[in-house]
Amino acid sequence: MENNKNELFTFAEFDESKSEHIEAPRYSYWKSVWRTFVRNKFTVAVCIFMLIVVVFSMIQPIFSQYDPMYMPNINDATLKFLGPSSQHLFGTDNFGRDVFDACWAGAKNSLIIGFVCTLINMILGVVIGAIWGFSKKMDRWMIEIYNVISNVPFLLLAMVLSYVLGSGFRSLIFIMCVTNWIYVAYFIRTQVMIIRDREYNLASRCLGTSTWTMITKNILPYLISVIMTYTAREIPANISYEVFLSFLGLGLGQQNASLGRMISQYTTYMNAYPHLFWIPVSILAVISISLYIVGQALADASDPRTHR
């Protein structure tokens, strides 16, 4: 007993390299993003819901083969303005078309246009904005271009272009991308300028790192979360734009199913057959809001300050 006690009063071994060891589990950026994202059960639920809606709107039109120009029941009054039933889940419209099929075909187009436009705008905007933020020479004339473009009303431009190009899928995407990337680019430029002169970039310069490597390795990884935030806003905004332009008759033509066109056509029946108007509006709202919530949650999760 006594011996045992005295044993405690002898020197312990001392190992220097042990003190360099890091106990904490390995950090991985994307794993942490994932962990932070799934921690919030509500957003995970919304995300699952959103995925179901997206997948459904991509698949359902394949089976329904919905075509807005195909109106076999146009002369059968008994099949017009039907309320929701097991036969027609969302009822039928003034031409006797099935609203359920129309909604999903429209949603599919809206989603495709929203995603494609966002993708084009973000890619152009991020690449150009990143270079813009670095190059002083480019900044001088890009600012002028930005000033000119941002002073032209978008609606005016959209009207002129849609008359010139005609309505349709491609021309709508072109209209929605031709100038909008510059706002993304301007935003990225400002973000780049904020972190461009930080010390770690100076350190990279001292190591001889090229500007392009600095952009891809030093700047963009820091911008992931702001880019995510921007994208999260951009997708629903583009969907709304599509709907808005189609509503005005500037977007997709008669031949394409479109939520915007449906809403504009059914406005007339708002009092007599309110479900015709409210169903496409609700679907639009559900898609936009769930996309926005998921996007924001992803943006938050990609900010390393939330990691732990």
Binding site: Y29, R198, E199, Y200, L202, A203, S204, L207, G208, T209, S210, T213, K217, N218, P221, Y222, P304
Partner: peptide, 20 residues
């Protein structure tokens, strides 16, 4: 402030090697 927070230590140390 002078290390790239989004890069691994391996990259931080190799950066100069890559450049040259």
């Amino acid at each position: 402030a002078s290390l790239n927070e989004r890069a691994t230590i391996e990259y931080c140390i190799s950066e100069g090697l890559y450049n040259f």
